[in-house]
Amino acid sequence: MDPTSTQAPPVQVALFVTCLVDIFRPTIGFASIKLLEDAGCEVHVPKVQTCCGQPAWNSGDRENTLEIAKQVIAAFEEYDYIVAPSGSCAGMIKVHYPELFEKIPDWHERALKLSAKTYEITGFLIDILEVSKVNAKHKAKVSYHDSCAGLRELGISKQPRKLLKSVEGLDLVEMKDCEICCGFGGTFAVKYSDISNSIVSEKTANIVATDPDLLLAGDLGCLMNMAGKLKRQGSKIKVRHVVEVLAGLNDDKPIAGRD
């Protein structure tokens, strides 16, 4: 089926905004909507969404995770697809929800159904909608960091690069160890801040050595960590979420600083 065909009804996509994007960087949400609409989808933003429950899940609080996950399932299961501008949150719904409900049969089934139609946005555009290029210009030397959950739980690696290569004027340069963790890890960055600092310093050294104008990634948590460290180190490298560039929404200031 060609999702962009005029005969077929548009694909109904629910955007899972993610809590970080909601609070810290709305631009990423709007860029996601634009990319999905450009690809012919009808985008919905369910009102009851808050967070996927990952902070509770990774802190060992199963009971609260279950309640939050049930809320997400109920709010999103009616749509054709669920798309998030985050490998980590999409991974939570796609990989961890089924695991979470393993011993609760009726919810397990609903979790599996939701899991099957949940995607990280670049993966959704390339693998499901078969978009081959985006309509954007961005003259810059860009490097891309692979966020862990997207990479290892969902196999997101080629998809963002393929889309970036279609951006006019954009020069993609790979940094050393782009697939190694930035040290964010959610609450890890605060609980074990010294270790996190050592890991992110290793990461920013690799970024700086590549000397890009702009650093991109697909997860706002990692981006805030790397941008915050680069800023503290006095670097001029700008940081944005990959969808901002793909959608051509670059009027917002880069993460952690002015242009």
Binding site: V190, V200, G228, K229, I255
Partner: peptide, 29 residues
């Protein structure tokens, strides 16, 4: 104006080593 926070109570673990990128005002929702 710089959109970054360099010290914040309760987030000391974060700001000890890096700036906290600040939100731009209103939420996405």
């Amino acid at each position: 104006a710089n959109k970054q926070i360099n010290r914040l109570p309760m987030a000391g673990g974060w700001t000890a080593h890096r700036a906290l990128p600040a939100p731009h005002g209103a939420t996405f929702m």
